[in-house]
Amino acid sequence: MDKEFFVREIELRQDMLYRIAYAILQNDDACADALQDAILKAWEKRNTLREEQYFRTWLTRILINTCRRARMKQRRFLSIEEVPEPSAQPPDPTLALLLSQMPEQLRLPLLLQSCEGMTYAEISQVLQLPESTVRGRIHRAKLYMRKELEA
């Protein structure tokens, strides 16, 4: 992988990367740090990616790991007074609220499928879960959303 390919891929996938980071961290400043960190890590580990066609799943996996670690640090150090201001409103605040209330184990597979168009096999690789578990979680997530939206 050369730098030109790497920069181009990051540029193309900015929105996807942001959504995934935000789905885990729920805070823009934390996202900016984690995204930067994940991109630098990805470059450092570039030789672990044998085929460039898997760049998206590979990078997503690195980003999710980075965000989860960042969140652990957030939990450890954030006091009540330091809770960050919420970000500006998304186009559908109700949907955003419902998604944020959904357990992460359901939210992430749902986003990877519905927003990012990943296949069950890709999500299985990204989240390191059996494909059938991914199917089950997406099914549960959709039922959850359906119930909440109907309510």
């Binding site: 980071a21 970000s87 949907l95």
Partner: peptide, 12 residues
């Protein structure tokens, strides 16, 4: 579901 996210903030 993309409508649950705002556009990528400039600083991100």
């Amino acid at each position: 579901f993309r409508r649950a996210f705002r556009a990528t903030p400039e600083h991100c």
